[in-house]
Amino acid sequence: MPYYLPFHAPPTGQCLPYHRATAAQRTLAGNYLHQRLGTHFPTLRAVTWTRALADYQPDLWLRGTVVALAETDLTQLAQHLATSPELPVLDPPLYGLPALHLAQHSLQASELAVWALGEVAAGATACGPRLEALLRRLVYPSPLAEQVVQAWCWNLASAPLLAPGLPGAPPWPDSAEIERLLNHLKFPGSPGGLVPGTGPGPAKQLFPGPLVRRVA
C-alpha cells in the first residue's frame, strides 16, 4: 500500500508567532521539538536544536502551559535537521518508502509520456511548444528515480508492491526511436509541419527493463 503522509489540520490552542514568544516559551518549544524528534537525531548538539528553531521561527501553539508545534512545521524541521553537517553521511544511502513511491510515480510518468509521444507524433494535431517541452522532459526518466527503485530488494516477500506497468513495449528511453519521434512532432505554421527537436539528450539508463515494473 502506498505510503502517504496524511493532511494535518492546525493544532488546537492559541497561535503565537515565534518572534513574539518569551524566552521561556521558546525553551518549551525547543523541549517539544526535541521530545518529538530527539530519537531521530540522538547525536545532535543542543545548540543545533536551538538554532534550527531560531532560523525557522515556526508558529507556537499554546494550550495552557503546554507549547506545541504544528505537524507540518515538525516535518519541515525534520528535513532541515537531517541535513545538519554533524550527522554522518550514509554511504550507500538509504531510501525510505516515500522516496520509493515518488520514484515509481516519476518512472510511470515517463512510461506514459513515451506512449503519448508516439500518439502525438503520429497524429494530425499540431504540437505546441509547451507540449513539446513537457514531452522532452518526461520521456527521459530521472536517473535518480531509477537508482531509488534499483536499490530495493524486490525478490523478498516483504518487499513493497511494484507499481503497475503499462501493457506493451514502448521504445526504450535511450533509443534512437525517441529522438526520431521528437523530431517528427508537428508544429503550427512550420514548413511541412515538422520542426527538428533541440531538447536535451537522453538520460543515462542505469539498467534495462520496463520503466516501472522492474525487479532487481
Score class of each variant (00 low, 15 high):
Gln57Cys: 14
Gln57Ser: 14
Asp59Pro: 09
Leu60Lys: 10
Leu60Tyr: 13
Trp61Arg: 05
Arg63Lys: 11
Arg63Ala: 12
Gly64Met: 02
Thr65Tyr: 13
Thr65Ala: 14
Val67Gln: 07
Val67Trp: 08
Ala68Glu: 12
Leu69Met: 13
Ala70Met: 07
Ala70Gly: 15
Ala70Arg: 08
Ala70Ile: 07
Glu71Val: 12
Thr72Tyr: 10
Thr72Pro: 11
Asp73Met: 03
Leu74Asp: 05
Leu74Ser: 05
Leu74Phe: 04
Gln76Asp: 06
Gln76His: 05
Gln76Lys: 04
Leu77Asn: 07
Leu77Trp: 09
Gln79Val: 03
His80Met: 14
His80Thr: 15
Leu81Asn: 00
Ala82Glu: 07
Thr83Asp: 09
Ser84Arg: 00
Pro85Val: 01
Pro85Ser: 01
Leu87Glu: 12
Leu87Tyr: 14
Pro88Ser: 14
Val89Pro: 13
Pro92Phe: 07
Pro93Glu: 00
Tyr95Pro: 04
Tyr95Ala: 06
Leu97Asp: 01
Leu97Lys: 01
Leu97Glu: 02
Leu97Trp: 03
Leu97Tyr: 01
Leu100Trp: 11
His101Pro: 10
His101Tyr: 15
His101Glu: 15
Ala103Asn: 03
Ala103Tyr: 03
Gln104Trp: 02
Gln104Gly: 04
His105Trp: 06
His105Phe: 09
His105Cys: 04
Ser106Tyr: 04
Gln108Ser: 09
Ala109His: 04
Ala109Ser: 10
Ser110Ala: 05
Glu111Tyr: 06
Glu111Gln: 10
Leu112Val: 09
Leu112Lys: 15
Leu112Met: 13
Ala113Pro: 12
Trp115Ala: 12
Ala116Gln: 11
Ala116Arg: 14
Ala116Trp: 05
Leu117Gln: 02
Leu117Val: 02
Gly118His: 08
Val120Trp: 10
Ala121Met: 12
Ala121Ser: 12
Ala122Phe: 09
Ala122His: 11
Gly123Asp: 05
Gly123Val: 03
Ala124Lys: 09
Thr125Lys: 05
Thr125Ile: 08
Ala126Asp: 08
Cys127His: 03
Cys127Tyr: 02
Pro129Thr: 09
Pro129Cys: 05
Pro129Phe: 07
Pro129Ser: 07
Arg130Tyr: 15
Leu131His: 11
Leu131Gln: 14
Glu132Asp: 04
Ala133Ser: 08
Leu135Tyr: 07
Leu135Asp: 05
Arg136Tyr: 08
Arg136Glu: 14
Arg137Leu: 00
Leu138Gly: 04
Val139Ile: 03
Val139Trp: 00
Tyr140Leu: 00
Tyr140Cys: 00
Tyr140Gln: 00
Tyr140Pro: 03
Ser142Ala: 07
Ser142Asp: 12
Ser142Arg: 00
Pro143Glu: 06
Leu144His: 10
Ala145His: 06
Glu146Ile: 10
Gln147His: 08
Val148Lys: 04
Val148Trp: 07
Val148Ser: 05
Val149His: 00
Gln150Leu: 15
Gln150Thr: 07
Ala151His: 14
Ala151Tyr: 11
Cys153Asn: 14
Asn155Cys: 06
Asn155Ala: 08
Ser158His: 02
Ala159His: 03
Pro160Lys: 09
Leu161Gln: 13
Pro164Gly: 09
Pro164Val: 05
Gly165His: 11
Gly165Lys: 10
Leu166Pro: 09
Leu166Phe: 12
Gly168Ser: 01
Ala169Leu: 04
Ala169Gly: 00
Pro171Tyr: 00
